[in-house]
Simulated assay, not measured.
Amino acid sequence: MQGAALLTGLTAATMQGDDNAYGLIPDAAIAVGDGKILWVGPLSGCPADHLALPHHPHEGRLVTPALIDCHTHIVHGGHRAREFEMRLEGASYEDIARAGGGIISTVTATRDASLDDLIATALPRIDALIGEGVSTVEIKSGYGLDLETELNMLRAARALEQARAITVKTTFLGAHAVPAGMDADTYIDTICLPALDAAHGEGLVDAVDGFCEGIAFTPAQIARVFDRARALDLPVKLHAEQLSHLGGTALAAKYNALSADHIEYANESDAAAMAGAGTVAVLLPGAFYTLHETQMPPVDALRHHDVPIALATDWNPGSSPMGSLLLAMNMGCTLFGLTPAEALGSTTRNAALALGLTDRGTITPGQRADLAIWNVEHPAELSYRFGFNPLHQRIHEGTL
């Protein structure tokens, strides 16, 4: 069996069971082989065949599932530091967008970048996430808004998976903004849908997303994109209810979306619809913080309806230039009131669900051996500190 080993001397946060529990196993051992978890439990109960494997002691460290960043925009050109200044000088997100800034300014920089440029500038971002124990990351397009640049963004995302030991899930976000000088419906017909077809034809798309907002696309327009995704047998997700309540969350639920993301303006009815559709709520505290938002996502309603909650960085050059999933966990607790157990579940088990993945996110026999080993005593420490990275070792597909 390839790479077979027994990891010992661990406190295992298996993330199995209740959302408010870590599924802790003290003095745990984990047997891995062929990139999978073979067994987990107290060392005292380890089967003899696993005890015979090479031992890798860890001196009481904590092990969790490797982290999953389920919403990022890390492939792009340029930066928007000047817009950061503008916001501090009083301009709103909508003001900047309507003046040709925001997403459109990144579109210009991304169109000017070559494929090699996009890969080279994204690699340090991938490395930063890997350095915090991330083993799976979602990367969206959406800064091209023309066919070739959208394809190049997705090609770059696929190339990152070849350049680093990380799983990349790609999301087509052609319906991210409307290019200058074009109306939304014409853009969808002449650029967005043809680009989706072309990207799917190249095998570049794992899911389809859209930005349903007053400064972007209406629910009816997003529905047209989702209809094409459905025809291509691609799952959907949606930026919904970030700045206002347009009905995007209900639309996402209607299409059984993998996730509805942001959702600050979602309500109790939206939470019930998400629960019925099996849609994960992806909360993005980096954007909430950067934009000085005050409308809180409906965390209590999500809990009441048992909607899985995920957290992600939303790493992008404008509204969330945040490259730390550990910081997102802290913000999820301090800004949104999640518990540390919910925060860890939101970046492991529930983040996997938000990407449609069932083979990772918990420490369970048969799951991928994607693990993170930490220099901490208790899993709450991962959310408690900020500006501090306690990662000891990341294990990707069982590679020690």
Rank of each mutant, 00 (worst) to 15 (best):
residue 204 L to F: 05
residue 276 G to V: 11
residue 72 T to L: 00
residue 119 I to H: 01
residue 141 S to K: 06
residue 277 A to L: 06
residue 196 L to C: 03
residue 363 I to H: 08
residue 383 S to K: 04
residue 134 V to D: 11
residue 285 P to Y: 06
residue 394 R to P: 01
residue 397 E to Q: 15
residue 115 L to N: 07
residue 372 A to Y: 09
residue 84 F to V: 11
residue 292 H to D: 11
residue 190 T to D: 13
residue 382 L to G: 03
residue 185 D to N: 13
residue 283 L to A: 09
residue 327 L to F: 12
residue 30 I to K: 07
residue 272 A to R: 15
residue 161 E to Y: 04
residue 14 T to C: 10
residue 396 H to D: 09
residue 297 P to S: 01
residue 1 M to A: 13
residue 338 L to F: 03
residue 224 R to Q: 15
residue 102 G to S: 00
residue 54 P to Y: 08
residue 115 L to V: 09
residue 39 W to Q: 05
residue 293 E to K: 05
residue 87 R to H: 07
residue 289 Y to W: 10
residue 227 D to T: 14
residue 324 S to A: 10
residue 306 D to Q: 15
residue 306 D to T: 14
residue 274 M to Q: 12
residue 122 A to F: 05
residue 195 A to T: 06
residue 77 G to Y: 02
residue 266 A to C: 09
residue 107 V to T: 04
residue 307 V to D: 00
residue 258 L to G: 11
residue 253 A to Q: 07
residue 52 A to C: 10
residue 390 P to L: 07
residue 337 G to Q: 10
residue 126 I to W: 02
residue 86 M to A: 14
residue 378 H to N: 12
residue 111 R to E: 06
residue 300 D to P: 05
residue 204 L to M: 06
residue 365 P to S: 13
residue 305 H to D: 11
residue 128 A to P: 07
residue 229 A to L: 05
residue 283 L to Q: 09
residue 149 T to M: 04
residue 362 T to N: 08
residue 157 A to V: 01
residue 317 P to F: 00
residue 125 R to D: 06
residue 26 P to K: 12
residue 121 T to C: 13
residue 44 S to W: 04
residue 185 D to I: 06
residue 336 F to E: 08
residue 131 G to I: 11
residue 123 L to N: 06
residue 218 T to W: 05
residue 51 L to W: 05
residue 204 L to C: 06
residue 348 T to K: 01
residue 286 G to L: 03
residue 120 A to W: 01
residue 227 D to C: 10
residue 309 I to D: 00
residue 338 L to K: 01
residue 182 M to E: 12
residue 16 Q to E: 15
residue 246 L to I: 12
residue 95 D to Q: 14
residue 224 R to I: 07
residue 341 A to T: 10
residue 259 S to W: 04
residue 33 G to I: 04
residue 258 L to P: 07
residue 30 I to D: 05
residue 311 L to Q: 02
residue 131 G to A: 15
residue 190 T to L: 10
residue 199 A to W: 01
residue 192 C to V: 15
residue 125 R to Q: 12
residue 247 G to M: 09
residue 372 A to R: 11
residue 377 E to I: 11
residue 102 G to I: 03
residue 144 G to D: 04
residue 123 L to D: 12
residue 63 V to S: 09
residue 143 Y to H: 09
residue 343 A to G: 04
residue 209 D to A: 12
residue 298 P to E: 02
residue 393 Q to R: 13
residue 325 L to V: 05
residue 321 P to C: 03
residue 232 L to C: 11
residue 197 D to R: 14
residue 316 N to M: 02
residue 90 G to E: 02
residue 98 R to H: 13
residue 123 L to T: 14
residue 188 I to K: 01
residue 316 N to E: 01
residue 290 T to R: 07
residue 100 G to I: 08
residue 324 S to K: 03
residue 93 Y to K: 01
residue 332 G to N: 05
residue 294 T to I: 12
residue 327 L to P: 00
residue 96 I to T: 02
residue 253 A to E: 10
residue 68 I to F: 09
residue 213 E to C: 09
residue 378 H to Y: 11
residue 238 L to S: 13
residue 147 L to E: 15
residue 378 H to T: 15
residue 107 V to A: 02
residue 191 I to E: 02
residue 159 A to C: 00
residue 121 T to N: 10
residue 228 R to Q: 14
residue 188 I to T: 08
residue 315 W to Q: 03
residue 400 L to K: 06
residue 284 L to F: 08
residue 172 F to K: 02
